[in-house]
Computed example of a mutant assay.
Amino acid sequence: MKDPEILLHYIDTLLKESNFTRAAHELYISQPYLTQLIKHIEQKLETKIINRETIPFSLTEAGIIYYHYLEQTIANNQNLVKKLTPFVLPNNEVIRIGILESLGTFLLPELLPNFLTKNPNIKIQLSETYPRENETRLLNEQIDCYIGQTPETLNHGLDFYVNGGENYYVIISPKSPFFKKGRFILQPNEYKMKDILQEPFVVSSANSAIRHQVNGAFQKFHVKPNIILESKSILTATNLSIKGVGLTISAASIIKRMAQTPINLLPLDNNLIQIKYFLAVKHSIKQNNGLKKLIDTFKKLKIQPSIK
Rank of each mutant, 00 (worst) to 15 (best):
E5S: 13
E5C: 10
H9M: 14
L14G: 03
L15Q: 02
K16A: 13
S18F: 05
R22C: 08
I29C: 14
Y33E: 10
K39V: 13
H40I: 06
E42I: 10
K44G: 11
E46H: 12
T47S: 13
I49S: 02
I50Q: 03
R52Y: 05
S58A: 15
Y67T: 01
E71C: 14
T73Y: 06
N77L: 13
Q78P: 00
L80N: 05
P86W: 06
P86Q: 11
P86I: 12
F87A: 11
N91K: 15
R96P: 00
I97Y: 04
I97K: 02
E101D: 11
S102M: 11
G104R: 09
T105I: 15
L112M: 08
F115G: 08
L116A: 08
N119G: 05
T129H: 04
N134K: 01
Y146K: 01
I147Q: 06
Q149L: 15
Q149Y: 05
T150Q: 08
T150W: 02
T153H: 08
L158I: 10
D159S: 14
F160G: 03
V162H: 02
N163F: 09
N167D: 14
Y169F: 15
Y169K: 06
V170P: 01
S173K: 01
K181M: 08
I185C: 04
P188S: 12
E190F: 10
Y191S: 08
Y191N: 09
K194V: 13
P200L: 12
P200G: 07
F201M: 05
S208L: 15
A209E: 02
I210F: 00
R211G: 05
H212A: 13
Q213S: 10
N215T: 08
G216M: 11
G216N: 12
G216W: 00
K220P: 00
V223T: 02
P225V: 04
P225I: 07
P225H: 07
I227R: 02
K232Y: 08
K232G: 14
I234G: 13
N239W: 05
N239M: 13
A251T: 05
S253D: 09
I254G: 02
N270F: 10
Q274S: 15
I275F: 05
I275V: 15
Y277R: 07
F278A: 06
K282V: 07
K286C: 07
N288T: 12
N288G: 12
I295P: 02
D296K: 15
K300A: 14
Q304T: 13
P305W: 09
